[in-house]
Amino acid sequence: MSEAQALLEAERITKRFAGISALEEVTVEVHRGELVGLIGPNGAGKTTLFDCLSGKLRPDEGDVRFDGRSLVGLPVHRRARLGLARTFQRIELFSGMNVRDQLLVAERARHGGGSFLRDAVGLSRPTADEIERCDRMLDLLGLTPDADRPIESLSLGRGRLVELGRALMTEPKLLFLDEPSSGLDRRETHDMGTVLQAVQERSHTAILLVEHDVPMVQRLATRLYVLDAGHLIASGPTREVLDDPAVRAAYLGVGV
C-alpha cells in the first residue's frame, strides 16, 4: 500500500489441525487507530487467527509483522509488551483475585517484569497512581460497584467488561476482541461500543473485532474481513462487504 506502513501485517497465515484446515493463506492488515471487523460463520477460523497473531498458536506458515518488526517466534507475553492485547471468546480471568486486582496486575505488567529485588525489600506495593488509573478504568466501564468483589462472583456479562478493562490497562496499540458483546444485552452492547470508540479515538488504539452481532460490527467497523472455512472470502468497506451475496449466503442468512 502506498500510505503509511500498516500496524499489523499478517501474511499468508496457514494453520492446520490434524486434517482440519483452520486457516489457509489468510492475509490481513490493520492500520494504526483503525477499527476493523472480522466476521465469518462458526468454525471459520477467527479465533484461530487471533491465537496465531497473539502467539498462542504457532502458524504452520506465514509471517506476522507488527509495528515494523517480525513477531515470528515471539512468545505471547513478549507480543503483549509490544502492544498487542486481547480478550478471549471463552472468558479468561484471574480466578482468586478481586476485580480491581485484575487490572492492577495488568497495569504492573505494562511496566515490565518487576524486579525481584524490589520485591525482596518490600518496594513493590501498588502505588497511588496505579490504583488511581485502575479506578478510572473501572469507572469508564461502569464496574466501580464491583471493584472489590471476587471475580468468581461476577456474572458472565460483567466478567466480559472486566476482561476488556484488563486488556485496556496495558495501553495496547492493537486490541483483539473476540466476541466482546456476547453475554451483553443490546444496550450494554451499545455502551461497550461507545467505550470502544472513545478508546480508539483518545488513545489511537487499533482494534480488530470478531463479532456475531452484526449491528455492532456495522456501527463500529470501517472495514471488514470475512473468513469462511479458513479462507478469506471477502474484504473491504463494511457496507459493501455486508451486501456481498457470497457473504450473505455463508454468514448472514436471509433474515438480516
Binding site: S54, P75, A80, F88, L93, S95, G96, V105, A120, A167
Partner: peptide, 28 residues
C-alpha cells in the same frame, strides 16, 4: 514481601489463568 510484591501478584495471576497472564505481558 515477595508474596505481596509484584512477583506474588504475577504468580497469583498465573495461577488464575496462565494464558490470560501472558496476554497482559507476564512471563510465566
Amino acid at each position: 514481601v515477595v508474596k505481596r510484591g509484584t512477583t506474588g501478584r504475577f504468580l497469583d495471576a498465573l495461577r488464575g489463568s496462565e494464558y490470560a497472564a501472558a496476554s497482559v505481558g507476564i512471563s510465566a
